[in-house]
Write a protein that binds this DNA or RNA. Structure first.
Lengths: 312, 312
DNA sequence: TCTTCACATAAGTAAATCTTATCTGATTGG
DNA sequence: CCAATCAGATAAGATTTACTTATGTGAAGA
């Protein structure tokens, strides 16, 4: 039965009218005359059996029925528009929109962007860095890179790399502090963004893992992991860096990781896209490239002792 | 620009086809011929510039574009349908659908339902008891009664009564345990549903409020407040009952509240409906009746010492 | 008071949507 | 293996829906 829903054109007219609170503006938004819009509203009101607007002197006002309809109508059309944009996006084989957290964007994606662009000049990457996880179906995003443990239905998800943290600093600084014991004297940088990880992987846990009961508290604190790493890169101290964010700096010699003990976080960065979209040209290309890039720095992981902490 | 969205009838046809994965079934759902539906899909595909379905031998399969569109299209139309039902509901002046938690439904609404029906025979009440808070715009509900502290935009909200908890038991049992001290010997019933409240208002806190350091742990536990109160009504022991759930039993003599010390929860039951709907006949009638009912038992609150606990 | 603004209405027109009828191609059951 | 059947495509004409131009109404504001 189609009788559940009134004529959609009329509903759309109502949505526009309710947003503008003006038939004239709504009409121009929909590229029709005010008369047509007036007609549509009237038709909708007939379907409902009651007015949706109070017609005032030179303005309109929503009735109770109109108020009840407004929000849902707006949401519904927004959802449809987003879905349509998503469908259109699948036809665009040259752009690929990726969302990731600010730290991953700054420390993993950005430094490798040039290489990707060279290898795949036909794909134009766009980045939507945001902390609040974007919704792949709503926010015009094709791929999300997220730090997580869980899988979601409706989403294609593959783990990119296990995540762990370990102390890193500039090579110059590393020369001054040759042993874990000596790190007690080193300037410590705190990355507060890893505090959300359970089990906790902080300095206290790392020192415990190398057999030193030590719990540093003094030192600069950063709420964003990339800022903490930037501070370490500037020689400001030693920071517990997350795998994905530091491997390139280690590989290129900008950072040193002198101690072979790392803490596993139990989480990993995952590559996410809508189920079925993993076969799209750009998405598959980008995924395979990411997996390759992670593989390139695998040897660093292999030389480490990765300590698993018990769940808390 | 209307160009953001394709013809809505076509989108709707796609939604049905994607849900059924069959043009024929979709056509019969929409009460049109298969030919018409085939046409609509084709038209949509032309707007998109790409096929949405792979036409197989005797089945259809979604393309990437179709997969990208499916979920959002379904959600969008569901939202629109819900909104339309909400608008239709405003035209129904005789029914009123209310949602509340199971405890409030059982212990506040149900016992007073007969009185309301007598006073307002023209309003037919319907109840949707559920723990997960129903969405007023989505779930065909006019009014929600919720235990909360916070206000929400888009919702009309008025507090019905401050909430507090105090020990109650049958009058017979109350005779045996005349003092707070003697309650240490009484059978204690635990209502685990109040554990979600912060600051914690449990037996330990109540005993502390009357100057007794005592922390009972033995006794039957109930996850639903109404079940705990039912146990107390059956004479099984003494329970920390929430204001709204016990006032009627106290007023009618089924429960006794011998000690004048109550713990404030900082929360209250609120009456919620969509903004603008508060002027609807039945909603206003029901709200005013609820406020009146709470007022009737106000004298009980006035005779109490209500202890505010510090936030934890 | 007269203009203007915002919406309503009427009548004719354009466009979309639907139907009946026919067609294709592949699975399936005998 | 072949006819029956099923799912969908296509064509042409009918119908309904949606839109436009033109005109009407009533109230606010200069």
């Amino acid at each position: 039965m189609s009788s559940r829903l009134p004529p959609l054109t009329a509903l759309r007219a109502f949505d526009a009218a309710a947003r503008h609170m003006s038939f004239a503006l709504a009409a121009s938004e929909l590229n029709v005359t005010a008369a047509a819009l007036s007609f549509q509203i009237k038709s909708l009101e007939q379907h409902l059996g009651a007015p949706l607007f109070h017609r005032l002197n030179r303005a309109v006002e929503l009735t109770e029925a109109g108020l009840a309809l407004r929000q849902g109508a707006a949401e519904g059309f927004q959802t449809l528009e987003a879905a349509w944009r998503a469908a259109l996006r699948t036809q665009d084989t040259k752009t690929l929109t990726i969302t990731a957290g600010p730290a991953f964007t700054a420390k993993w994606l950005a430094p490798r962007l040039f290489e990707f662009a060279q290898a795949h000049p036909d794909v134009e990457l766009r980045f939507a860095a945001s902390l609040q996880r974007a919704d792949l179906t709503r926010d015009n995003v094709d791929v999300a890179i997220r730090f997580s443990k869980t899988a979601t239905p409706d989403l294609y998800s593959i783990p990119l790399a296990e995540e762990w943290v370990m102390p890193v600093m500039t090579p110059a600084l590393a020369a001054q502090y040759p042993t874990p014991e000596s790190l007690k004297e080193a300037p410590i940088i705190f990355d507060d963004s890893i505090r959300i990880i359970t089990p906790r992987v902080g300095w206290t846990e790392w020192f415990a893992a190398v057999g030193l009961p030590y719990s540093p508290t003094l030192g600069p604190r950063f709420s964003q992991a990339d800022h903490a790493i930037d501070a370490a890169l500037a020689g400001a101290g030693v920071v517990l860096g997350r795998h994905a964010l530091i491997v390139k700096d280690i590989a290129d010699g900008r950072l040193a990781a002198p101690f072979p003990t790392a803490l596993a976080t139990g989480a990993h960065f995952s590559f996410l896209c809508l189920k079925g979209m993993e076969s799209r040209q750009q998405i598959a290309v980008f995924r395979d490239w990411m997996l390759d890039e992670f593989r390139k720095t695998d040897h660093i992981t292999k030389s480490l002792t990765i300590v698993e902490l018990p769940e808390t």
